[in-house]
């Protein structure tokens, strides 16, 4: 009886792992085809490559301008996330700690606009970017700070909502004690409240990294120059109007996924926590 049960549970475990591996088959197909030459790729996309053609990677790096676009993605993501966390935590803290009509209204505005899809804002936003250069002399199109600013704006709603919810759950007494000891409002926020918010800070960082790193549409509207392209924009260079060089494209896609996989394995614990916390919005 006991051994029967053990065998059954072992079989179930094996089944589960196999299912997990099935889930990764598309990535496997991507990797094996990234090493093939064209003839081999078309002969059978599921067979293992007979020779490892590393040149695909060199060509992909060249074609995507991989290092530049990787750095662009990194700079845009890191700076956007930094400012989103800073501004939204400050704002949400103040709104949660001030109980008056304008704070409640502002909070409501942040939360209600989460329903607006990006496609509703995209065209007017592009027009505004053009006006900004024409009438104010501030170029926004084709600048890194322009896209970072837009990510800050788009990131506010969810981040303010998450921080606000968390601040409401921290007792005020600690902050009051600090104020009595002569701590300024800034001191209270940066020395006491901000460090306590760490779980929410991690959630916001994780969710926004995943969002901004993978975002395609906004950068495609803002960044036209080849030297400013982010990773998602550069992958589209494989998929032009004419025939697709699948082996090179697969090498390129593999390259773009490697940083994501590394990030996943380093921060898995936080990612899963962040996803759970972010979903209960």
């Amino acid at each position: 009886m006991k051994t029967g049960r053990k065998v059954l549970s072992a079989a179930a475990s094996v089944f589960m792992i196999l299912l997990g591996l099935c889930f990764l088959i598309p990535l496997y197909i991507m990797v094996i085809n990234s090493f093939k030459n064209r003839a081999e790729l078309y002969m059978s996309p599921v067979a293992l490559p007979t020779v490892l053609r590393i040149e695909n990677y060199a060509e992909a790096i060249d074609r995507m301008n991989f290092l530049t676009s990787f750095m662009n993605s990194l700079v845009v993501t890191v700076s956007s996330v930094f400012f989103i966390v800073l501004f939204s935590s400050m704002c949400a803290w103040m709104l949660a700690r001030t109980d008056d009509r304008k704070s409640r209204f502002l909070y409501f505005a942040f939360v209600a606009t989460m329903l607006i899809p990006f496609h509703t804002l995209m065209m007017p936003l592009v027009q505004m970017m053009k006006w900004s250069r024409e009438y104010l002399g501030i170029p926004v199109l084709n600048t890194r700070y322009g896209i970072v600013f837009m990510y800050i704006g788009f990131g506010m709603s969810l981040a303010v909502f998450l921080f606000h919810g968390f601040v409401k759950s921290i007792p005020v007494s600690l902050e009051e004690a600090a104020t009595l000891d002569g701590c300024s409002r800034f001191g209270v926020f940066f020395r006491i409240s901000f460090p306590i918010m760490k779980p929410t800070i991690m959630t916001v960082i994780i969710l926004d990294i995943i969002w901004i790193w993978n975002d395609y549409l906004l950068p495609s509207l803002v960044l036209n120059g080849k030297e400013l392209r982010t990773i998602p924009l550069s992958t589209s260079s494989f998929f032009g109007v004419f025939t697709i060089q699948w082996n090179e494209a697969m090498a390129g896609l593999t390259l773009t996924i490697i940083p994501v996989v590394i990030f996943y394995f380093c921060a898995q614990k936080y990612i899963i926590k962040g996803v759970v916390a972010g979903a209960v919005k």
């Binding site: 589960m16 997990g20 889930f23 598309p26 998929f239 773009t256 996943y264 996803v275």
Partner: peptide, 29 residues
Amino acid sequence: LKGSNMARTMFFMPNLIGGLILGYIWKFI
């Protein structure tokens, strides 16, 4: 079951990859 953490890791993996890149991979498949 044994190995459920590993399975969970694998099942969640595709979620971190952007829609555009996923779309391209599956286009080939």
